[in-house]
Design a binder for these strands. Structure first.
Lengths: 175, 175
DNA sequence: AGCAATTAATCAGGGCACTGAGTATTTCAG
DNA sequence: CTGAAATACTCAGTGCCCTGATTAATTGCT
C-alpha cells in the first residue's frame, strides 16, 4: 500500500545502469581490467607522473579506493609507483610499456562496448543522456565540496534546501 | 596522446552518478539503511511473503548480494525470514512492525532527497532522464537474459534474439 | 520408487566505495 | 628552530556486486 515506484528513483536507476554496464564490460572489454582501472590508465596516458590523490580526483575515486586500485595495477605490472623526491609523502605514478599497450587495446574495445550499450538511443538522445547525467552528478558533487566558496551558510546539509521544488501537486513518489 | 574523454563514457558517468547518490543518501536519508536495503523493504511492503530470489529479481540484486542484504535487515530486526512449508528450499520474507515503520519514515526522506538530487533538471528533463536511463539499462539486461518467450513457440528457445547493435554509421568513439 | 536434473540459498573470493583512525612527511606559526 | 597543523597515503571495518562452488530440497524421468 505505501510502496513507491522505484523506477522514479534516480538512485535505483543509477544502480541498475551501473550493474548493466559492469556486466557488459566483463563480456565485451575485459575480465581482468575493470572500468575504474581503465579510467586510471587513461588518466596516466594523458598525464604521466601524477600522484595518487590527483589521479583520484580526475577519475572520481577516493583516497582509499585509489590505494587499492593502484596496488592491483602495480601487481599486474601496468604501472610504476615511485616516491616523489620533491615531496616524500607523494607517490608518482607512471604507466609501464605493458600499461600503455593494455590501455590502447582496451580503448578499442571500450569504444565498441559504448556503441552497443548506447545503441537503444538515437544520436541526439545520447547527447541528452550524457548531458543530463553529467549535470545531476556535478550538482550533487557541488553539494559536498562547496568548490568555489560562494559565500553561503555552510550548515544546510541536514536541513531541507530546495525551496523551489515542491510545485507540482501530485508528487511522483508519494505513498 | 591516445587518451579518451571519459565524460563520453556511459559507464564512467553511471559510476559517478551512483557515487553522488550514495553520498547524498547518507546525508539526507539514512546512515543505517542503504538504498538497496530500502528497495527490499519497499518490495516487501507491496508484496509480503515473497522469497529471496523473487525480491532480488524485483529490485535487481543477485542471489549472493540478496543473501547478505537480507541478513543485515534481519539482524536489525526489520524483517523475518521463515522457511516455506510448501517448499523447503525457499525462505519467505515479511517485514516486522519496525520494518514497516522504518520504510514509512524513509519514504518521506527519500522523496525529499530525490527532489534535491534532481533539482538541476526541469520537469521535462527529469522525465527524459528517467526514460533514457531506463531504456539503456533495460536493453543491456535484455542482452544477457533473452527475456521470456511470450508464446510457446518451441523453436526459438536457444536462439539469440538481438540482431540489432551496430547501426548508425557515424560512431563517436571509433577505434 | 529411485536417481538425475533443477532450484533456493549460502559460502569463498575478488573488486569497488565510503568513513574514521593511524603513519610519515612537509609546512607553518611563534 | 621547534612543535602544531596540514597533507599523502595506508589500514580496519562495513556494505554492495559479481562469479563459481557447495548444500539442501524439489521435480522430473524412467
Amino acid at each position: 500500500m505505501a510502496a513507491v515506484d522505484l523506477s522514479t528513483h534516480p538512485g535505483h536507476l543509477a544502480r541498475r545502469l551501473q550493474q548493466a554496464h559492469y556486466l557488459l564490460w566483463n563480456v565485451m572489454v575485459s575480465e581482468e581490467i575493470t572500468s575504474p582501472q581503465f579510467a586510471v590508465l587513461n588518466t596516466l596516458v594523458a598525464e604521466p607522473g601524477l600522484d595518487q590523490r590527483t589521479v583520484g580526483e580526475r577519475v572520481g575515486l577516493d583516497r582509499s579506493t585509489m590505494s587499492e586500485v593502484i596496488t592491483r595495477l602495480g601487481r599486474r605490472g601496468l604501472l610504476d609507483k615511485v616516491r616523489d623526491p620533491q615531496d616524500g609523502r607523494r607517490f608518482l605514478l607512471r604507466l609501464t610499456e605493458d600499461g600503455v599497450r593494455t590501455h590502447r587495446r582496451l580503448t578499442v574495445r571500450t569504444a565498441r562496448m559504448n556503441q552497443v550499450f548506447l545503441a537503444p538511443l538515437s544520436e541526439g538522445e545520447q547527447s541528452q543522456f550524457f548531458e543530463l547525467i553529467r549535470r545531476v552528478a556535478d550538482a550533487a558533487e557541488e553539494l559536498r565540496s562547496p568548490a568555489e566558496p560562494l559565500r553561503q551558510d555552510p550548515d544546510r546539509l541536514g536541513a531541507a534546501p530546495a525551496p523551489d521544488v515542491a510545485r507540482h501537486g501530485g508528487d511522483p513518489v508519494t505513498s
